[in-house]
Amino acid sequence: MHDAGKVIPGIIAFVLFVTVPFWTNFGKAAPKPQPELPKEYKKCVESKEFMRREHMKLLRKWRFDVVRNNMRVYINSEGRLINMSLQNECMRCHTSKKKFCDVCHDYVAAHPYCWNCHIPPEEKKGWATKEVKSLTEEASSKQPASHH
């Protein structure tokens, strides 16, 4: 081989690059997400397969119907009537975002931002950790150029 000094490192770099998925996982256990399913309820809004596949589309449709069309009831494929609400309906059965939603979302690194507004069941206590006084100080210190 000619120019072995350059070609061989090149080949090694190439092989390492294309086999990244293999060697970075080597020796690690293959993880499997196990979302916690509600015990008392057997049936979700639609079939399990449908929900796993299309829950985001369904929620998107719900949000559109509720907010924009003032339609709040969903009729599922079995004819059952369901109140369209992530916070008040879905999470009634799935009592934990952490143990249900996050399990798969973290697994596939999907980060929906529903929860920026919608309140997961385990966060009922609220977020106001700061004292009001310190907040005032903080706010005024951030606006040095303006005051009333």
């Binding site: 916070q87 507004c117 309140i119 069941p121 966060e123 009922k124 609220g126 106001a128 700061k130 907040l135």
Partner: peptide, 11 residues
Amino acid sequence: PYIKNPNPRYP
């Protein structure tokens, strides 16, 4: 951070 006592039924 400014909501002390949230209503869990509303976002």
